[in-house]
Every structure is written in C-alpha cells, then in structure tokens.
Computed example of a mutant assay.
Amino acid sequence: MEKLNNAVAKVPEVTLAFWIIKIAATTLGETGGDAASMSMSLGYLVSTLIFGVIFLVAVTAQIKADRFNPVLYWITIIATTTVGTTLADFADRSLGIGYAGGSALLLGLLLASLLVWYRTMGSVSVTTVSSSKAEMFYWVTIMFSQTLGTALGDWTADTEGLGYAGAALIYGGLLLAIVIAHYATRMPRTLLFWAAFILTRPLGAVVGDFLDKPIANGGLAMSRYGASIALVLFILVCGTLFRQRPAKVSH
C-alpha cells in the first residue's frame, strides 16, 4: 500500500497566484509550441515528439518526487501545454480532423479520463492527489485538458471568426462566471476547479496567438521567442513574489 502524506499533497494550493501563473503558463505553451513548430520550422509532428519526451521526463520526476516542488510542478505544467499546442495543431491541421472534430475528440478523452479517475479513486479533487496512482490520473487529465484548450481556442478564434480578442473576451467572461459561481452558489468546488482549469487553456491559446500572429490576422506580430522569454520571466517573478504552498490532503 502506498504511504500517503496526511497533511500535504504534491500539487499547489489553489489561490489567485495559482491561476495567474496557470494562465501565463498556458500562454507560454502557445508561443513556445508555435516557436518550435513554425519559427524553427520543425513541424507539428517533430515538435510534438520533442515536447512529448520533455513531458514524460518532467512528469516522471514529478511523480517520483517525495514532496511538493513548485519549480518542478510548473515545468511539468508548461511541458503539458507546449506538447498540447503542437499535438492539437498536428491533429487539427496535419491529420485534417479540423478544429471542431479535434475539440470533440479531445473532450471525449478528457471526460473519459475524469470518469476512470473517479471510478478508480473515488474522487477527482486535487486535494486527494497524494499517491502515485492519483497523480498519474491527474497529469493524464491535465494533458487532455491542455490539448483540448488549444483546439477550442483555435476553433473559436479562427473557424468561428471571433478573432483573438473576441475569443479572449468570451473565455475571460466564462472564467468570471465560474468565479461568481464559486462565491455565490454551492456548486461542487471540484467541478468549478476543472471547468476553470480547462478554460484557462483556450484563453492562454488565444492570448498567445494575439501576441505573435501577424497584424493582418489580428495579432501584434511579436517575436515568438521574445514573447516566450517575457512569459518565462513573468512566471519566475510571480513564483518569487507569491509563495506557493502544497494543497492540504483530504481522504
């Protein structure tokens, strides 16, 4: 039987700082993924393989760690969002599934992951992520959510013609609705957490595209490298200013 930590988990406490860093990390995943697949001309498949290896190394280190390490945790999150960017682009564009088809497929995989996790562990709350098995479910679910978010962001901004700013307003509005629901209703906190976690990804995707896409396409035409470096620095500053504590474990 796995030894559980009765006080803390290896994932961070969910605070305002957590969400700020999460949005910045998902935006970095978009600019970083595009930098590799487009600016470096590696293509979606090669970039996905590279980031996939980085993700596997990071998540293995995260699962093997014996305590919460904020640096390792956020490196793993960034790895999921970069590989999610290139993987979604590969499925949507190279395989010809399209944004709507890719979003539907990934939503199904995400819901299946949450269902299997719940049936196996009895809960999908982050406060129960205190064993290797729960952590594996946690990271698989995050991987699907990050990839889904990329497809959703591209779908709303491009296919639906809302543009990057319009799509950002929609996802920002949905996140605001979740915040209101958190404070004004008794909706399950776990449901609200995963809804917010999923929605931060398309928000980050469209913000990342807004930063680096050509002006003619509605972007700011920033260098993908420059935008990625700025986001890394922002995450480092936030991580330094706002101390992150591990979530308390519930059983």
Rank of each mutant, 00 (worst) to 15 (best):
F197P: 03
R93F: 09
H182N: 06
D92T: 00
G98Y: 11
A167F: 08
Y164W: 13
I215C: 03
G122Y: 08
A196N: 03
Y99T: 04
D158W: 00
L191T: 06
H182F: 11
A91L: 07
A151Y: 08
L192Q: 02
L87P: 04
V116P: 02
A168K: 06
A168R: 06
Y118T: 00
R189C: 00
I198F: 07
V140A: 14
Y99H: 13
S145R: 10
D212P: 00
G172P: 06
V207G: 12
L191P: 05
L106V: 00
T128E: 14
A157S: 14
Y183Q: 08
L203W: 11
Y138G: 00
S131M: 13
P188W: 08
L107A: 12
S145D: 09
Y183T: 09
D212A: 03
S125T: 09
I180T: 04
G218N: 07
V129L: 04
A168W: 01
W194V: 00
M222N: 07
R186L: 01
F144Q: 07
G166M: 12
R186G: 12
S125I: 02
D92L: 04
S223K: 00
L115Y: 14
E135G: 11
P202V: 06
G173K: 06
G166T: 10
S131A: 09
W194I: 01
A134C: 06
L111T: 15
A196Y: 03
R201L: 09
L109E: 02
A112I: 05
A151G: 06
S130Q: 12
A216S: 14
A184W: 12
S131H: 09
G204M: 13
G153C: 09
D92K: 03
V179Y: 05
G102T: 15
I97L: 14
L169Q: 03
S113D: 12
A177F: 12
S131I: 14
D89W: 04
L203N: 04
E160R: 13
G219E: 03
T156L: 15
D209I: 11
Y99L: 13
A91V: 09
W117D: 15
A221D: 15
D89K: 03
A134D: 08
A196E: 04
T156G: 12
L114D: 09
Y118F: 13
Y164M: 01
T159I: 11
I170S: 03
G204Q: 12
R189L: 07
A165D: 07
G166C: 07
I215T: 14
G208H: 05
D89M: 01
A216T: 02
D154M: 10
S130Y: 08
T156I: 10
D209N: 15
V179G: 08
G96M: 04
